[in-house]
Every structure is written in structure tokens, then in C-alpha cells.
Amino acid sequence: MIIIKTEAEVAMMKESAMLVSKTLTEVAKVLKAGMTTLQIDKLCATFVRDHKAIPSFLNYRGYPHSICASVNDVVVHGFPNNEPLKEGDIVSIDMGVILNGWHGDHAYTFIIGEADEAVLKLVRVTKESLYRGIEKAIAGNRVGDISNAIQDYTEKRNGYGVVRELVGHGLGRSMHEDPQVPNYGKRGDGKKLKENMVLAIEPMINMGTKDVYTEDDGWTVRTRDGKPSVHFEHDVCVKKNKALILSDYPIIEAAEQNNPNLNVSYYAHSMTI
């Protein structure tokens, strides 16, 4: 069942989404080679609890951490661990919070130090595809319009693999609500978008094949060919003429640009709408 939010509920969801953005900003301030993803997990959990919220990933269906930390060929759901991050690593941090009963859930991919031009392009195109999808999140369109915009830009125009097994989703008092929001599909297909539907739109794009597999831990999803994958995610409220983005990349990007250990050379232009 798709749950339409009131304006007051959307405002509360924006607070939840913003807390995720503020937490990811703290990561952007300190992330560097030599850190471990377990250190990032602890930083995020502490920051969330200090702001009177609950890390929503922790113990969700048995998941044992507060964030997902997916490095290089890990697509999503990577377990934080004690392995030091290295120059050239691409690191996706995906996390959620529950604040005043409402979920925020989004992700950002960082590049540590120097990286190949092919990696920089993958990060740029994936991030841009997110905004192309968001442009279609307006009342009267259908889910497939979002899906097709992402697939067209990443797969058809740039030759990347679009993961099929994992999709975006509705968001609200539950972390996962209807409708599902795939990153592939046909224009005009799927559920009709109505004003004040809240969606987590999240392209998961592979440099090579679209094929993935899940490790024995039951969570960690990797690319089948071992090539890098990139994941970006925004919380978005459907509106009549222009989608309302509830989460905030500019504050993350400002911290990222001020951290000399992170690579922002892929920034080609403003990717906000």
C-alpha cells in the first residue's frame, strides 16, 4: 500500500533526512586513507544518538551495524570492518535514522585520494543519473519514468551495468514502503506518482556487468566481475511541478571539498535541481 504523507509529515521526514545528511557530512570531514569503516560506523552511531535519534539499520532483519560501508566492488550492504581504507578506494556510506517516528535513509559515495579517470567518470555519471531520476518524480508521472531516466543515462548512454536485484523504495514510518523504484524500466510503466509520496531514489551502477552476487554473510552484495560499483541515494517528496529533495548533498559536498584527502575532481558542474 502506498502511503501519502501530509505536509506536516513531510516536514518531519525532512528532519530525519537532514539528520542523515548531517551525519554523512561528519564523515566527509574526516574520511581518509588509514581509517577503518568500523571507525566510521562508530562515528555515525554516536552522532545519530547524540541527536536523539536511532540508527535504523542496526538490527534491521539481523543487520549487525549502524551503517553499510561498501568499498570498490561492493555494491551495497557492506559490513564495516577493521581493514584500513586505501588511496584510490571508493566508499559508499549508506545509513538510516528514525527521528520522531519517521525514517531518513540515503547514501553518498566518496573517493579517497587519486583514482583512475574511469572511476571518476563512474562516480560522476551515477550521481548525475540520480538527479535525472529525481527530475521525473513529479505528480502525474509514473515510477517507470524515474527508472527509465536513470537507465537511459547510465546504461544506454554510458555503457554501465544497472543492478536489477536491488531497487529504491517508498519511505515513511517504515524504512521500506511501496512502491519499489527500480533503476531500470520503461517510460509510462509502474505506479502513478501522487503528490506527497516520499521515495528513496538510489541508483546502484556498476562499471562492468550488471550481474551481482551475495556473500555467505547474507548481506554483502558484490559485482560479479569484480569491477567497481557506485551508489547514491536521496530522499525525495513527489510534488506537482518539481520534486522536493528532503536530504541535502550540498552540505556533504562542502565538507568533501574542504577535506584534502578526498577527490572531488569529478565535479563537472552543479548537479542540483
Rank of each mutant, 00 (worst) to 15 (best):
A17H: 03
G226R: 04
V212A: 02
H176S: 11
T214Q: 11
H269P: 02
Q39C: 03
S70A: 12
T126P: 01
D217G: 05
L38W: 04
C68S: 14
I67V: 14
I4S: 05
T109N: 09
G96M: 04
P228M: 10
A255Y: 08
V123S: 06
R61D: 14
A255M: 09
Y153N: 01
T126E: 03
R173F: 11
L262E: 10
D248C: 11
V91K: 08
L122E: 03
G144W: 00
K32L: 08
T37N: 05
I90R: 00
K242M: 13
M197G: 04
R49F: 04
I273E: 13
I2P: 06
A115K: 07
E215N: 12
L38V: 05
Q39M: 11
V230E: 01
G101A: 09
E253H: 08
E135R: 15
T223H: 01
M1A: 12
T37F: 09
V76D: 01
S265Q: 14
K192I: 13
L85R: 10
T37E: 11
K32G: 10
A53N: 12
P250T: 06
K86G: 02
N261R: 13
S16F: 07
E135F: 07
S16C: 11
N258C: 12
I112D: 07
Y108M: 09
V27I: 15
G88T: 09
M204V: 00
K127I: 00
T272V: 14
V30I: 15
V238W: 02
I54D: 10
H77A: 06
Y266H: 14
K22F: 08
R124H: 13
T209K: 10
E233H: 07
I150W: 00
N100I: 10
Y60N: 13
A28N: 09
N196Y: 12
R224G: 05
G188P: 06
A139Y: 01
V27A: 09
M271K: 14
D235G: 01
E256T: 14
I251P: 00
N261D: 13
N241H: 15
G226V: 04
A69V: 08
V163A: 00
P228L: 06
T220K: 03
N241V: 08
A8I: 13
I138A: 07
Y108R: 07
K210L: 03
L85P: 08
T154D: 02
H169V: 00
G185N: 01
C44A: 11
C237N: 07
L171A: 02
G159I: 04
I201W: 00
R49G: 06
Q151H: 03
A69Y: 06
E135Y: 10
G88Y: 06
R222W: 04
V48H: 05
P80A: 07
A118H: 13
R187D: 02
D145P: 02
G34T: 09
V97F: 04
T46N: 14
T223G: 05
E165G: 03
L193C: 07
N82W: 06
S56I: 01
